[in-house]
Design a protein around this nucleic acid. Structure first.
Lengths: 149, 149
DNA sequence: AATCTAATTGCGACCTGATCGCAACAACGA
DNA sequence: TCGTTGTTGCGATCAGGTCGCAATTAGATT
């Protein structure tokens, strides 16, 4: 495989993969968007929009905060990132092909991941009883992590 | 039963019940707190703090916004109300003896309730696998309601 | 009833996270 | 190379919520 291969199977997509998907959707690829995507791909596991903005500014001092937000919106619209509301404050962003739930410890703030299949049965039965189709990715489940219990 | 009976069993607690619990915790019962509690007991199903403040101000024009927040905090601390983060914006408050989950439709914003037992099995198995104890009351589960599906 | 003291209030300033309107700019198809 | 139109940077603005502080007051003590 050469480095120009498409990202067809699993594994973390590269920055170029994401840019391609952006381009494919009709959106334009700009320096600001490159920088945001790079920060998203390079970065730690649960960046807030402000985290990303801070990281972007280091290498691209004239990329504005609001462009970071707008880029994240654009990426969300084509489904390549999503954000999760962890709590009172900010939302955190992540590549949305990791199809999993977020667990937020309400005491220490730790974030854990579990596969979304862990709730599939409950989601199904809730849907049958109430008609409500749970999409668990968008919000964190809160609780207590192992250490804080 | 006379009107001075304690609220021991189920049913919605009255404003006086809640004030009693506040008093019992060592906190003071003030006009501001009476007004907030009254608004909470009288009001619609999912008030935000601002909703409550707006309602309080009608009958008590000099109760300040921040006192509403602080009263809600005080009530939360003794466990009689909780708040649920529905989305990007505000949290909504409710008497916490209705021990149920909130389902938020991400399209139309409708809020539905289900008993928390509906997730008990999933919560248990997640706890066994990951050690993480889900407390589902604090955040809404998001998804699609029957009409928006 | 008068007094005391710590909890609570009202106020406004402030903070964070996020959005918006707008003129200037630039990506990319023709 | 050019033109269209999607994006950007900027600052103003918003919303939800918190904070410090002096003044007030609930409720225990006398």
């Amino acid at each position: 495989m050469s480095s120009s291969d498409n990202e067809l199977s699993s594994g973390s997509p590269t920055a170029e993969d994401l840019l391609d998907r952006l381009r494919a959707s009709g959106a334009r690829v700009t320096a600001a968007r490159r920088a945001v995507i790079q920060a998203l791909v390079d970065g730690g596991p649960h960046p807030t929009a402000e985290d990303l903005a801070a990281k972007v500014v280091i290498s691209h001092p004239d990329v504005h905060r609001s462009s970071v937000y707008r880029t994240l919106d654009a990426l969300a619209e084509i489904g390549v990132v999503s954000h999760v509301h962890l709590g009172h404050g900010s939302a955190v962003y992540h590549l949305s092909d990791d199809d999993d739930l977020h667990l937020l410890c309400r005491l220490c703030g730790a974030v854990d991941h579990i596969p979304s299949t862990a709730m599939a049965a409950a989601a199904r039965s809730i849907e049958q009883e109430t008609g409500f189709a749970i999409r668990p990715g968008h919000y964190a489940l809160s609780g207590l992590c192992e250490r804080c219990k």
